[in-house]
Every structure is written in structure tokens, then in C-alpha cells.
Design a protein around this nucleic acid. Sequence first.
DNA 1: CGCGAGTTTGAAATTCTTCAAGATCGGTGG
DNA 2: CCACCGATCTTGAAGAATTTCAAACTCGCG
Lengths: 248, 248
Amino acid sequence: MGMKATVPITVAELKTACSQCNLLELCLPFGMSEDEINRLDELVGTRRKIKRQQNLYRAGDPFEAIYAIRTGSFKTDVLLEDGREQVTGFQMTGEILGLDGISAEAHTCNAVALEDSEVCVIAYGKLEELSRVVEGLQHQFHKVMSREIVRDHGVMMLLGSMRAEERLAAFLLNLSQRFTARGFSAAEFHLRMTRDEIGSYLGLKLETVSRAFSKFQDDGLIAVQQKHIRILDIPGLKKLIQRNASAR
Amino acid sequence: MGMKATVPITVAELKTACSQCNLLELCLPFGMSEDEINRLDELVGTRRKIKRQQNLYRAGDPFEAIYAIRTGSFKTDVLLEDGREQVTGFQMTGEILGLDGISAEAHTCNAVALEDSEVCVIAYGKLEELSRVVEGLQHQFHKVMSREIVRDHGVMMLLGSMRAEERLAAFLLNLSQRFTARGFSAAEFHLRMTRDEIGSYLGLKLETVSRAFSKFQDDGLIAVQQKHIRILDIPGLKKLIQRNASAR
DNA sequence: CGCGAGTTTGAAATTCTTCAAGATCGGTGG
DNA sequence: CCACCGATCTTGAAGAATTTCAAACTCGCG
């Protein structure tokens, strides 16, 4: 096991050049010039595979890196002492995980893979360093963080002001839109999360989620078969969110 | 009204040196070296006074600056087409407003002064520029954004997994802790927001908020007199949050 | 083929909201 | 100086939404 400086390494196995990545328009480099993106190659140290149900990180883990999802999907959640779980988000390819850790130099939530997944590991120190010289990277990184804040406000709106069916409609439309952005069907997809996880995210019990799914099916808005969803009436779902003027 | 280059200007009226500010440990410069803080003087362009009930910015306004609260307090909210309001946060001195605007170069929520207030205007372009050369500023700014994300997750926990009384208890404890950090009493303070605004923030109707206040008073946890709050039993409030194991 | 995790559905219980009516407060004008 | 006004807050009672509890169903997998 001697170390030989000349041992050839298949770099592609370990590192991922952002410039070669097909997730460019969804991920951190979005909006950067070609020139700038080429300077990002040192940014992504390694990739890391995470098996379904495994943690990418846990609350309390020291913060060292943020992660860009290359394949697969995740949920993030926070736990209360008494065991209550709140899912704070579901993330898919191109989205960034771990931003919560910057504030206290430790992660504050758990990130769990919903399926076998792979992430690009972006050492945070390197990111700060590089974003001091690559303006586009600095700006894009700020945008990513800000987008997360805006997204969170949307979830608050959902949880604080919408009723059960509106929440689920908003959730489905959000998924649909994100699948579309990734080149998948807007109308047909597989849920990677359980009813319980959806419920936790939406502030509802799993039975309530299930009932809302059934109701949508009865109303001809969607076709559900366990985790397989087909949206039949997108405008109908949209109307649901905006019309029910009665708040909670 | 001729312009004379030699007219003496009382700079202190227009600009605020961070290095002279008593909010240092609460605000953006927190954690930076004295040396670094001295390089911040060009950062804060002007101060701006906002009267009670007036907007610092509105959803849709072009994004140009973030704001540090010097005096007073604010709420931020998002509105749905049908008029529903979701208060996304209450901010006090030293806290930063406007981070939501970075993502789309336009603000996505409204910021309204809850009392006559004053903010430091931090031009965003200048902030990016300066944070490329002042490492401490870069890092602190990232921390501020990350902290906002963590805070939002806490609100999601609140809205998604707690019942009415738990939410109010968590809200009061959070206020108490933030007042303490500012050198005010942890146990006695004036609420700057209405029951309706608290309700919107907590995902409850104002009557529910009022009833929870009354209940806490009956239980000897607090003394309420309209907006004046005296907390009598902080451990009691804390227990409320963690003990009620039954989730929603 | 059967097991178990995840899902659906029903009925009762609970929490929160809605509607309605008074009460309280700070400020204003006679 | 005081009565009154509007805004805000409190409280009660009825109603609605969601949860809880319980039981049965479905599907993929060993």
C-alpha cells in the first residue's frame, strides 16, 4: 500500500467537473459564465453515495461542506426532544443541502436519502475562498441561500394559512413544477416519500393526507395508486389554492 | 439652494459607522475583528426612518439593499391573491431585513414597521464587493443568511407540529430570549404586534391567541394586560413545549 | 404464499375556528 | 377635563376541520 506520486488515478471517479455536469442549469453554477464555471473544477472535492434511508448528515454533526444532489432525492427534518418530527423539505437533483450548518458551524437538521442517491461534496472553506475571486460564484451562492429563505416563507404560508386540501394541492403542484424543470413529466410521477413524511411536511396526519388524495381522485383532479401520481387537472388544483378564501 | 463643495456636513447624521454602533454584537459585524469592522464604514450608506405602519419595502420592489434595524421593530409578511396574510417573522434591533430579495432581485415579502423605527441601508452591491476582500464580513454575512434559514425551520416546526398553546409558549420564550440579548428584561415586555399578527405568525386565529393568553394567565404562567406581558414561570412555559408528547 | 410496511377508510373525539357580543384602552375633540 | 370613538381584545357557544383510534386493505419482497 505504498504511496506513489505517479499512480494514475481515474479522476472522473472521484471528482466531478461542474462544467461537464448536466445539472448545470439547476445547480449552484446556474447563471455563471462559461469562463467562470471552468474555474469551479477545484470546488467539488468528491462525490458521495448515500443509500436509501441513510443520513447524509445529522443534527449536531460538525459543518464542513454543503452538498449538491447529483442523483436521487432527500428529506430534511428537525426533531423535538419528545420525538416529534418536522420535515422541513424534500430536495431533488441540483438542489443544495446543508446551508443550515453555516450559522453555528454544525448541522441543525437531519438529511436522509429517500432513495439511493449521490451528492457532490463542496467543502465550505473552499467555496468561501473561491467565491472571493469568482464573482459569479459569490453571487450565485447568495442567490441559492436567498432562494432557500423564500422557499421557507412559502412553506410557512402553507402551514400557517392553508387548509389540508390546499396544502396538498400546493405540494403536488410544487413537485410537478420541479419535475418539469428536470425534464420529467409534469403530470405523472412517483412519490419518493411516505404519507407520513408528506404529512409531517404539511403539518397534517398521514390519514388526513390519504383522505385528501382520495378526495382529489374522487373529484377527478388526480389519479393515485399508492406512490404513483397522475395529475389530471392542473388548473383545477391551482384553483383550489386560490379560491378557498376562508383562511385558517 | 446652490451646491457648495465646501459646505460642512455632519456626517454622523447621514452615515453610521458600524464601529461606533452599540448593536455590534447583535448585528452583521458580530464576530469580526476590530480591524475588519473598521473597514465597514463605507458599507452603511445612509440610515432611513420608517414610521409605524409604513413599509420599508413591499413584495415586488426591486432589490437594492438589505437593512439592519437600528431602532424599532418590524414584521414581514407574504400575501396570497385572495388576501390571506402570513406573517413570516418579527424583527428587532440588530436583525437584518431583506435577504429574501437576493434570489430574484426583487423583494418577495413586505416589511412593515411595528413602531417608529430606523434602519441602516446596506447597498447590496457594495456588500458583495466588500465581502470579497474582508473575509470576516463574507463569513458573517453567510452566517446571517444561514441563521435565517435555521430560524425558518424552527417556525416550520412550530406551525407543523405544535398545538396552539405550545406555539404561543414558544413564541413568548423566543421573544423573552431576544429581549434578554438586547439587555432588556426577560420577564416583562410590551408586545409591538396585535393578536391578529401573532395569530398570523403562529397559524392561529386571533381569538385562539387571546384564549391561550388567558389560559396561561389562569395557570399562573404569565400576567397579561393587553400588550403588556409579564412572564411568571419560564420553566413552566418551557415544559409546555416539550411535555405535550401528542403531536398534531 | 404470506409477511410487514405502508395505505385507506370509518366513526368518535378533540382542537381550533367562526360568529356574536361585550369589554377595554388610548386618543380626540367638545 | 371628560365623554366618546374606533381599534383591539376577551369571552362564550356552536360549528367545522382535523386528529385519533381502530380495522381492513394493498403491494412488493423474501
